[in-house]
Amino acid sequence: MRKSAALLALVLGVGAAWALTPGDRVYVRGRDVAVLQSTAAGAVTVVKLQPGAAVVWRGADKKKPTWHHVETGGKSGFVYFANLSTTPPAPELLTSPQGAKKVDAQAFASSGAAGKALTEGAIRYGNQDEKNKGELHPTMKEAVRQTQTLEAIAAQRTDAEIAAQADRVTGGQR
């Protein structure tokens, strides 16, 4: 049962003494987060943002306090509160010729490391003869093949499918 409208009405925190002040920097926590032109149902998407994108916080909407007014790259609009955070997503530690280096979520997403499936080392681990001598079923080699199939199913899920799922859960309210 969808109760999105009721949910919005029941949200608490209106006028609370938050630690943020207008003009503070906050961060996007979800993927493909829509910045909407207004808080109205079916409002136009001004821009979609990715995890870790910094935006300027202007405050919660007075009528619909789950929607917060933000500015980014000269554009302005509203973001659902659960898609924002006062801290950016955790950085990732990548191996480089110069040693390990920390990269933020956006750099990590575009590094190629993020899309890695079973690594060569893990495949080698599962396929080594010594790991396939027991009586367990599936064998480790079969486990490798099954996991690679699973990873393909996971990797082939599109942003549109995930967005549709988010809408299915929330009734399209964010």
Binding site: R31, P51, N83, P89
Partner: peptide, 8 residues
């Protein structure tokens, strides 16, 4: 996507 490691 809502976690602190959304890009894994």
């Amino acid at each position: 996507a809502r976690s602190t490691r959304p890009t894994l």
